[in-house]
């Protein structure tokens, strides 16, 4: 599902955030990406949804080689992915329903389909009763749930999350993790960059540790491996 072959990413300022990364993530896997700040986790994530282009090497997502992907084809790649961020990235002027529906509107989905799918995912994340509320009326955990709902509403094969619990208290983080597990249980690949030791150690999954732009450890059911 996700394949990287010897990927190098050098930023214009000279920082090398990926220094020959190779990895293979299968359909339906749940993968944590861990490592110290500035180790290249975010770049690793950004390479997957083509916010960053590799300097050299190959990134292949769901059969699409991102190295040769033309700029105008990028939107179609992203429609097959769901992306969740630490800061939620919700549109403040849209209510919960509209924020989620937005992901389907931009791909010109039929209004009837939009209504059904949006209500389905809001049910999944447990926010069906708050559809008319605006992001600033919600707690952090609720906002993150809206953001997750938006990322999965178009039924992507892969959900990519960049520190989704980074801004949340521990209890809320567990709720969010439950949702990710449920998404994963439905067959969706989940790749999650995280700093949350408790979660990684409790919900055991494949752990990829990145340091200095290299994968230093890749263990199924591994632990977080860094001292909190």
């Amino acid at each position: 599902m996700i394949q990287m072959n010897n990927v190098v990413k050098k930023y214009p300022n000279g920082v090398v955030a990926a220094n020959g990364i190779s990895v293979d993530i299968k359909q339906g896997e749940f993968v944590y990406v861990v490592g110290p700040s500035g180790a290249g986790k975010s770049t690793f994530i950004k390479l997957m949804y083509r916010e960053e282009k590799p300097t050299s090497g190959e990134v292949i997502i769901a059969g699409t080689n991102l190295s040769t992907l033309k700029n105008r084809q990028v939107p179609y790649l992203r429609r097959q992915l769901g992306v969740v961020f630490q800061d939620f990235k919700l549109l403040p002027r849209l209510n919960v329903y509209e924020n989620v529906a937005f992901a389907l509107e931009v791909i010109e989905e039929h209004p009837k389909t939009i209504r059904k799918q949006v209500m389905d995912v809001l049910d999944l994340v447990g926010l069906k009763h708050k559809v008319r509320m605006f992001p600033n009326e919600l707690s952090g955990g609720e906002q993150q749930r809206v953001s997750i709902a938006r990322s999965i509403v178009n039924m992507p094969k892969v959900v990519i999350a960049d520190e989704p619990t980074g801004n949340l208290d521990p209890e809320t983080s567990w709720e969010i993790m439950n949702i990710f597990e449920e998404i994963n249980a439905r067959g969706t690949t989940v790749v999650m960059a995280t700093h949350n030791r408790e979660i990684v150690n409790a919900i055991r999954k494949r752990v990829i540790a990145i340091e200095g732009g290299l994968i230093v450890r890749d263990v199924d059911g591994g632990d977080y491996g860094y001292e909190g």
């Binding site: 939107p75 992203r78 429609r79 990235k89 549109l91 937005f102």
Partner: peptide, 13 residues
């Protein structure tokens, strides 16, 4: 931000 989000959810230019 709005433009960024649109792009991230797969909106064409």
């Amino acid at each position: 931000d709005e433009i960024e989000i649109m792009k991230l959810v797969g909106a064409t230019n």
